[in-house]
Amino acid sequence: MAAAVAVPEHKLSESPNSRAIEIFDWTVTAKTGPISSAAQCDALQASLGIPHPEMMFGYNLLQIKHRPSGWTYAFRSEDALRGVKSGPLEDGDGGVKVGYADTWLKSRTGADSQIPLPQMVATKPYDWTYTTTYAGSLDDAGSRNAQWTPAEPSNAHHSIPIAELSRPDPILFYAEIPLFDDELHDNGASHLLVRVRVMPTCIFILSRFTLRVDNVLFRAHDTRVYHSFASAPPLVVRETRGWEAPHERVKRALPRRDDLMPLTDPNFICKVLSDMPKEVSQEAGAGTGWRGLGTVVQVTTLQP
């Protein structure tokens, strides 16, 4: 069967832990390696001021570079963690405690607590859920004129074309790049995963943050970056979407009530959250006041 679209000339390269594609004016590089070493984790912890996630993929990177303009956009775990709140959580941070926190604290400090506690110190507060609205990093100082500006709703080019992306064109380059993972001490899970596919007509990135706090809430934050090779001057569209819902509400969507495994699947979580009415998952959320809810579409025009 003939391909629906012509496959443009491109060059793939590969080295241990790194792969790249050169296509039109672009270079896309994906690096995936093992989790960070103890020494790297210590250094990161010192620099961030918060404990690092259990699985910290410090080496991993996705980078797209527009060679004529030098515009370089990247996704990396350290930058994503800089978006995690360090210090006491405030309005808009969407801070939560584990489901049984009140019972737990009472059992340890209440008048009927049978256990005299030894000296206790306060832990430095930070967002232990690793919630981040990270939407990528603008890497290159040469990107003098590339600022994200609000998309014009009337401009058809200022949105992500789902029809084009649904077409089964050949995938020329694909990578899945985990940035971090933490299981919140069996109280849920926090994941950040970046995926990229380079198609004959476009580059498409999805960076997905998902959070489950058992018996409390689900939260997700997606960043999509899209560039059509046909755009002139070259245009990049970035769309971010945040959702939240009480745990119980997502649990109702389980195919089998006693099998909770789908609740560990980011795709299942995002599907359920995004299928809910906007007023539920993008406005009310789980009532935490998290500022990441809602949708923002922005564009940037690259000028060589």
Binding site: Y100, T103, R108, H185
Partner: peptide
């Protein structure tokens, strides 16, 4: 969720501390 049995299977060392500390999760 609470009590010594929970602590034995869940608690973690923190080399930067001297004492016990309550996790910012609100438990543990």
């Amino acid at each position: 969720h609470e009590g010594p049995m929970a602590d034995l299977v869940w608690s973690d060392p923190d080399p930067e501390k001297e004492d016990f500390a309550i996790s910012p999760r609100g438990a543990g």
